[in-house]
């Protein structure tokens, strides 16, 4: 018993030491935030995604790469996801990795095991990288600080903090549509308060020289957002229609209405929906991270129309995640 106590004390001491814990300097080979990612690395990843996206066209069979052969990647989706999870899995498999995916429904988390326990258990089975999605901000960083430095962590969306690969794929598609983003006007419309996509995109687009405007009802704009992210903010979508080069629509979640953030979906659509009338008054490209509420933030005609980048975004998602894996393991 005595030795067990000593051991647990030691663990406590190390775990509680604030030394070496700093969000501002994450380990080099993790992808936790866009905020702390250098513009050089961002540009490198965007260019590599241009390379990979070429292989995702056409009808022929897909030739797997062997870049990640012998590597094991665990996708931990503590929050439900279909497209991001699938996109990561395909990117990993196409580069030749062994892949395992855990979701709360099939993991031991429902039995009360902590996130940290789950990760330690998997790491003991020699996992080389964790792709982590969690409903609480900061979990990928938290895990990264507690894993050995040869084990990589990739943030697949943490709470309403960041979703780095989404911002990378959005920027890659914007560049293919608009060219250099310096000086371009990008509007992000909808539930900014609860959006990690808006946050990561704001950081990334600013780094590439674009001007970003958050468009949202006052109830869905986080306090101080304009000054924290260095963006413009407005409550009126009509004000940005004429000048925006691209408009990113965010998904509005129905449960927000119950919590009093807006009165009803009809009123929301009236003020913040990209209706056919608004489409007619704008030349902007339309983007959406999905899944779309057709008839609320977007009409189906707009979502799949000539100026929509929605499906290219999805294709690009796989290419960007391949580029990220290549960078992490290079």
């Amino acid at each position: 018993m005595a030795s067990t106590n000593t051991a647990s004390k030691l663990t406590q001491r190390e775990a509680f030491s604030p030394n070496g814990k700093s969000v501002s300097s994450p380990k080099r080979w993790d992808l936790i935030t866009i905020e702390h990612l250098s513009t050089d690395i961002i540009l490198h990843l965007l260019e590599r995604s241009d390379y990979y996206v070429e292989f995702l066209q056409g009808a022929g069979p897909f030739q797997k790469w062997k870049l990640l052969e012998g590597r094991t990647i665990a996708n931990l989706f503590f929050e439900p996801s279909t497209r991001t999870r699938t996109s990561f899995e395909l990117a990993e498999r196409r580069l030749g990795a062994d892949v395992t995916t855990l979701t709360p429904a099939v993991s031991s988390l429902t039995k009360g095991e902590s996130v940290l326990d789950t990760v330690h258990v998997l790491e003991s089975m020699k996992v080389d990288a964790f792709v982590v999605r969690h409903a609480v901000a900061g979990v990928p960083q938290f895990l990264s600080e507690r894993l050995p430095s040869h084990v990589h962590v990739i943030n697949a969306g943490d709470g309403v903090h960041e979703h780095p690969t989404q911002a990378l794929l959005d920027a890659a598609e914007l560049r293919s549509a608009l060219g250099n983003l310096s000086g371009k006007q990008i509007a992000i419309v909808g539930d900014i308060l609860h959006s990690r996509v808006a946050r990561s995109n704001a950081w990334l687009l600013k780094k590439l020289g674009a001007t970003v405007t958050f468009v949202a009802p006052e109830t869905l704009l986080p306090r101080g957002a304009a000054s924290v992210f260095g963006v413009e903010a407005t409550n009126r979508l009509d004000d940005v229609l004429g000048m925006a080069d691209a408009i990113m629509m965010l998904r509005i979640q129905l449960e927000r209405q119950a919590r009093g953030f807006f009165p009803n979906l009809e009123e929301y659509r009236e003020q913040y929906g990209m209706t056919p009338e608004r489409m007619a008054r704008s030349n902007a490209y339309i983007m959406h991270p999905g899944p779309i509420n057709h008839g609320t933030e977007l009409e189906m005609e707009s979502a799949y129309g000539a100026r929509s980048l929605v499906l290219q975004q999805v294709k690009r998602g796989v290419a960007v995640r391949m580029a990220v894996m290549e960078w992490i393991f290079n």
Binding site: A137, D158, G159, H161, R199, P222, R223, G224, S227, V228
Partner: peptide, 12 residues
């Protein structure tokens, strides 16, 4: 609730 919660996306 303030600049830090806005940036980190943590409920304020």
């Amino acid at each position: 609730e303030g600049r830090v919660s806005t940036k980190l996306g943590i409920p304020g």
